[in-house]
Amino acid sequence: MSRLRAGTLLHNDAGTPYVVERLLSEGGFGQTYFGHRLTPSGRPGREVAIKVCRSLDDWHGEAYFGRLLAGDERVVDLLDVFVDATGRGSRQRRRHVLVFEYMADGTVWDAVEDGGLVWSEAKVRREIRALLSVLQRMHAVWLLHRDIKPDNVFLRDGRLVLGDFGISKLVLDTSPSPVSRLQGDFAPGNVTAGSVWGPHDDIYQVGLLAGTLLSGEVWWNQSVSIGSIAALECSDAFKSWIWHATGAKSKRYLDAFDAVHALSALRQIDMRPGRPPRSLRGQCIVFSGRLEDLPRTEATARARKAGARVQSRVTDSTTVVVTGSMRAGGVGAAEGIKLFGVRERIRTGQPIVLIDQQQFERLARRR
């Protein structure tokens, strides 16, 4: 696919001309150029981004999704769709063209490379929620984006705007998605292993984006670790959200609706020790953190003697979690991975009571 020269004119179905001025990007999708829509007098009018698609499927798909999401301020505005034809017969050349608003502020990737992107937790949460609202519209009608990476998320006046729907597709089509088309560096392990892309995988990419916005460094799938999340300057609650968004498939938020609910619930879930049960008898207990002057083996023995069943990890049957102090190297300031899981279970309705060491010792003495 040869590049267009500066000054090349492309005409839509109504004859409106667009002039190509310079190449912006090039890849498997085709080429994107900076240009202008010309006025009736032939003068440059609105600045635009002109995308010439290599694949007819990409052109059809992105045109469809652009029209579907038209008017959403968090989506790059699709201004025009047409086929530009030149020549006749066997010499005819057809170019499948999409015209978008030109995003002068660039992408998240551009901002990271310029060193000017480290946002506060409050701003990241607000902007991620706005982006998820777009995904809610898509997931509600069984559409997946599949390519939410920093160079496809644009900035407009300091706000996130989603673009590039070239590989979006209907989730009803369950054929495997080639990894080469899914930017493997930003795809979760379950996809790079050959699975089918699902709504939870869109959320994985949003989780990576949240890490990028907080850290000022591009997060890839290899960036996610206890250490990288621990290093983020944000609350334990938001670290927990990012941990689940970028976690294993079984722990990830189901779709945009689930992710928004979890984001909204961050301040509603109280992870402080609360009102203890009357007795430990019949309770399923998990210990989290370090207990002062009380070895875990001794605490376990006391709990069992009081009639409790002690579990090594949080399960569907867990009813009480005894919280101690954070161990060195933990992911959060006051919460570790185990409490992140407790937080998520409480959000989804599991009745778990948090108690501290003093409350536990008092209950353990009861018969």
Rank of each mutant, 00 (worst) to 15 (best):
G115R: 13
G115L: 11
G115M: 11
G115Y: 10
G116M: 06
G116F: 03
L117F: 12
L117G: 04
V118N: 06
V118D: 04
W119S: 06
W119E: 09
S120I: 10
S120G: 13
A122M: 09
V124G: 00
R125W: 01
R125P: 00
R125M: 11
I128F: 04
R129A: 12
R129G: 15
R129E: 13
A130E: 13
A130P: 01
L132K: 04
V134A: 12
V134I: 13
L135K: 03
L135G: 00
Q136K: 08
R137S: 09
R137D: 09
M138Q: 06
M138Y: 03
H139K: 10
W142F: 11
W142E: 14
L144V: 08
H145W: 08
R146Q: 14
R146T: 13
R146C: 14
D147L: 05
I148H: 00
I148D: 01
K149N: 12
D151L: 04
D151S: 14
N152W: 02
N152K: 04
F154H: 10
L155E: 06
L155P: 03
R156E: 10
D157P: 00
L160Y: 02
V161R: 06
G163M: 07
F165Q: 05
I167E: 09
S168W: 04
V171Q: 13
V171Y: 12
